[in-house]
């Protein structure tokens, strides 16, 4: 399990670097779709998990192949599940084919290279008509929509369709799919690995019971009660215990390494993870940290 998590974390950081290094500016490229940063696009941004402990992220970048493998958690009205995460709204990028315009709706097929899916955009007002006039067959489009199942066939009810004008958006979207896939996988495995007895861990992630006793060696324990990795938990606990220091400088990495008897590399890796998650922050320099 540790190896899987490590390789996933490595992959995630590798894909994240691709995001930061790319010339593609997501902010401007996505501005035409009517969705701004206020609408969460990844798991980390989404609201707290509902009572069934499955998260419903805001807008998930997916491929048609992923949709084809998504399972439905219950009846035809229930959400689709990918990686143990409920899908509500999705975004795809692909080529438009077989566009058919009617008074009430426009239907088309979206081909993203991994497969084809039928899409329908309901026409309720002039804006909808105008938006659909801007796109045509053989054109790359970005679609935002809601997954539905009709007589067992998955379809997409689109609420926004816009032409791709910056073609870096195409590889960006697929990298985004990989990135999101990794994030959700890490998140799900982070929740389930504390409870290895559950059979279909990816399908139904279960948070471990609050009274579960921790493993005797906390450093070796992969995940603690609250889902934090062993070292992360130790670091957090130490920072919490010493949060009342009057100088406000925070705790130095050397002190953490010395007191917790752990290699400085592991401490730094843990601090980076916790800082990225907003649990802690650096103070006077990159070596001093305080609990957020």
């Amino acid at each position: 399990m540790t190896n899987t998590s490590n390789s996933l974390s490595f992959s995630l950081s590798r894909v994240s670097k691709m995001f930061s290094g790319s010339q593609f500016d997501a902010t401007t490229a996505f501005s035409g779709g009517g969705f701004t940063s206020s609408q969460p696009s990844t798991l980390n941004d989404s609201s707290p998990a509902p009572s069934n402990s499955r998260e419903t992220p805001g807008l998930v970048p997916v491929t048609v192949k992923q949709i084809s493998e998504a399972s439905q958690s219950g009846d035809e009205k229930s959400n689709f599940v990918i990686n143990g995460v409920d899908l509500n709204n999705v975004t795809l990028v692909g080529m438009m084919f077989e566009k058919v315009e009617r008074n009430t709706d426009v239907s088309f097929v979206l081909d993203d290279g991994t497969g084809r899916i039928k899409c329908r955009r309901w026409i309720n007002e002039a804006f909808d008509t105008k938006e659909m006039e801007a796109v045509m067959n053989d054109m790359y489009v970005r679609v935002y929509g809601h997954l539905k199942s009709f007589q067992g066939v998955k379809q997409l009810v689109a609420f926004s369709v816009r032409p791709v004008t910056n073609f870096d958006e195409i590889p960006f979207h697929f990298i985004d799919c990989i990135h999101n896939h990794l994030r959700s996988k890490i998140k799900v495995e982070g929740i389930t690995s504390a409870n290895p007895s559950s059979g279909s861990s990816l399908e139904t992630p279960v948070k471990s019971a609050p009274n579960r006793s921790q493993a005797s060696n906390p450093v070796c324990a992969q995940h603690s009660v609250d889902g934090l990795k062993g070292i992360d938990k130790l670091v957090m606990d130490y920072l919490e215990q010493h949060s009342d220091r009057s100088d406000g400088r925070g705790i130095h990495v050397d002190e953490l390494s010395r007191e917790l008897k752990l290699p400085i590399e592991k401490i730094k890796l843990s601090l980076k993870t916790l800082a990225d998650d907003g649990e802690i922050y650096s103070t006077i320099d990159d070596d001093h940290y305080k609990k957020a």
């Binding site: 010339q23 593609f24 870096d168 990298i175 990989i178």
Partner: peptide
């Protein structure tokens, strides 16, 4: 203009550990 580096990385990822998302 096109970001060939990112595209090339994507080709490798899509044929490597993330093949399942594409094929």
């Amino acid at each position: 203009t096109f970001d060939t580096f990112s595209y090339n990385q994507l080709c490798q990822l899509a044929n490597g550990e993330f093949k399942g998302l594409f094929l």
